[in-house]
Simulated assay, not measured.
Amino acid sequence: MTIRVRRVYDEPTDRDGFRVLVDRLWPRGVSKEAARADLWLKDVAPSDALRRWFHHEEPRFEEFARRYRSELDANPAVADLRDVVASRPVVTLLYGAKDQEHNQAVVLRDYLGTGTPTASA
């Protein structure tokens, strides 16, 4: 099992495997055809309140990651994502943020037990 993280705006590749959009809002300017997302699992994304608080400000990332992991602990949609990951050799988590290191997909990948832990994990 491999979990990759990529921007939804990047050109899809054969290495992506099953592509899952993990944003609560559909990314601006990307058609569903261009995104080539196999699944949109918006319920696994951070809550609106947490997303607005974070506002992709890098100094807040450590606290964002802690709060998001807490949300994930109580989120039944995580089980759906775990099922997807367990049933496919490669899953790519898609996100719309510009920052490739400080976003919810990175936290989510690490939460699922692959990759390196995010700050304060």
Rank of each mutant, 00 (worst) to 15 (best):
I3H: 07
R4W: 02
V5S: 07
R6P: 06
R6S: 14
Y9R: 14
P12G: 13
T13F: 02
D16Q: 08
R19G: 12
V20H: 10
D23M: 08
R24E: 08
R24P: 08
R24L: 09
L25P: 02
L25R: 07
W26C: 08
W26H: 09
G29A: 03
V30Y: 03
V30H: 03
V30F: 05
K32E: 11
E33G: 14
A34Q: 15
A35T: 11
R36P: 04
D38E: 13
L41D: 06
K42S: 12
V44D: 12
A45C: 09
D48Y: 06
A49P: 03
L50V: 09
L50H: 12
R52P: 00
F54W: 00
H55T: 04
H56K: 04
H56P: 05
E58R: 15
P59E: 09
P59H: 10
R60W: 04
E62R: 14
E62Q: 11
Y68H: 06
R69G: 00
S70V: 03
E71T: 12
N75Q: 09
A77M: 09
A77L: 08
A79E: 15
A79Y: 01
D80R: 15
D80M: 08
D80I: 10
D80E: 15
A86H: 01
R88E: 07
R88Y: 07
P89C: 04
T92K: 12
L93A: 11
L93M: 10
L94V: 05
Y95S: 02
A97E: 10
K98M: 15
K98T: 15
D99F: 13
D99L: 14
E101F: 11
N103I: 01
V107Y: 00
L108Y: 02
R109Q: 14
R109T: 02
D110Y: 00
L112T: 11
G113F: 07
G113N: 11
T114W: 04
T116L: 12
T116F: 04
P117L: 08
P117H: 08
P117Q: 07
